[in-house]
Nucleic acid binder design. Structure first.
Lengths: 205, 205
DNA sequence: TCTGCGACTGGAACGTGTTTCGATTGTCCA
DNA sequence: TGGACAATCGAAACACGTTCCAGTCGCAGA
């Protein structure tokens, strides 16, 4: 049933297993941060996490699953950090731009890590649907919170069709820009500009 | 100098070489069409194109270069097909939607091929910049022609900053939608809807 | 026609993602 | 405590992208 999915935190029975999972993701992030996608070698991850190669594959059925799961964990952390304060800005557009730029800068601070995670995300195929979906939810949630009044608890927002459509387009543009930045086809300024343009075109209020 | 780029059609001296290049790209398309990204195996391409493995690598320095070059050739052909007739539709938005839907349907008719080409495009790194750029130009050109009056020769259009920004966003959304379709995260209808939404939000005239 | 040189061939070899499997360890139930 | 069963380990093996090399071919210039 779950044979082709990564083992999630909650599915893991024992503390030792949750710890193994954490060690694996930590090792993944560390290696990615040091040398990007290519440096995340399965043997290296296993060794650094102090786990056998076969075990690594039991927890994450492929390198892509592993990296996308790491991305999901990063987004989750970022989201819960942001939940602590209301988003500054007077308009939807301002707040969305603020949030995206803030996250973009955070990503750009660790280019190797971002390259690794982004490339994995883009290369993922249908078998990674669950992990990808988790990432998508985090992004949508972040944008929804920014689009609505500051201080609104995320759980109480009920987005309109239009909201969702707009968030989807903005998310797409953000991701496409990041991909271009990661692959050296766009500068950091270009990414910022793209977001600005897209948000202002989409959220003229 | 050109050591890390694919050999382009014009760079090739002899007819035999141009023919080799064509055979390689044909073999690539055929294999991709049959089994997608994974089926495009370098040994298989070489064998089918009746070329030694080393020669294949002399023409295209990696599998990604190969597939992105194939994508560029496909777009080039599609573009020159479309140049034969004016784009139907009364408004920019209508014409852009028409063109994108037409191309989307064409891509969806061969899901394996589309999967192979899209994934390669998304996975490409900085070393594939030239090939990627070629693809980008074809897409931009296609959108520019659709945004302006039907019948205008592509060479005579002088796009404004705004035009370019809008085309960029639309291109990003189109690509992101295709990626989602390829990976089973969006249906054909979803792709169509995304394009509709993005174009109507961006080209309200 | 002969010569030299770059292109091409066939095939071996290497690296890394992935699979497999027998031996060992940990855990939980009787 | 003892035993069963799953999880983990250690290590070999496989697949495919990529590199390398020695030999052959084709062709332009002498």
């Amino acid at each position: 049933m779950t044979s082709m999915n990564s083992l999630t935190f909650d599915e893991l029975g024992s503390a030792a297993q949750r710890d193994r999972r954490k060690r694996i993701l930590d090792a993944t992030i560390a290696l990615a941060s040091k040398g990007g996608f290519d440096a995340v070698q399965m043997r290296a991850v296993a060794e650094r996490a102090d786990v056998a190669l076969g075990t690594l594959y039991r927890y994450f059925p492929s390198k892509i699953h592993l990296l996308v799961s790491a991305l999901a964990r990063e987004f989750e952390q970022a989201n819960s950090n942001m939940d602590r304060k209301p988003v500054p800005g007077d308009t939807s557009a301002d707040r969305v731009i603020y949030v995206l730029n803030r996250n973009t800068r955070a990503l750009q601070r660790d280019p190797n890590l971002t390259e690794a995670l982004t490339r994995a995300f883009m290369f993922a195929d249908a078998s990674v649907a669950n992990e990808i979906h988790a990432v998508g939810m985090h992004v949508t949630r972040m944008l929804m919170r920014a689009m609505h009044d500051p201080g609104t608890p995320a759980s109480e927002i009920e987005p309109t069709e239009q909201d969702i459509a707009v968030a989807k387009v903005i998310g797409d543009v953000w991701l496409a820009s990041l991909v271009q930045w990661v692959t050296g086809r766009a500068s950091a300024a270009d990414v910022s500009k793209s977001i600005d343009v897209a948000v202002h075109l989409l959220l003229r209020d």
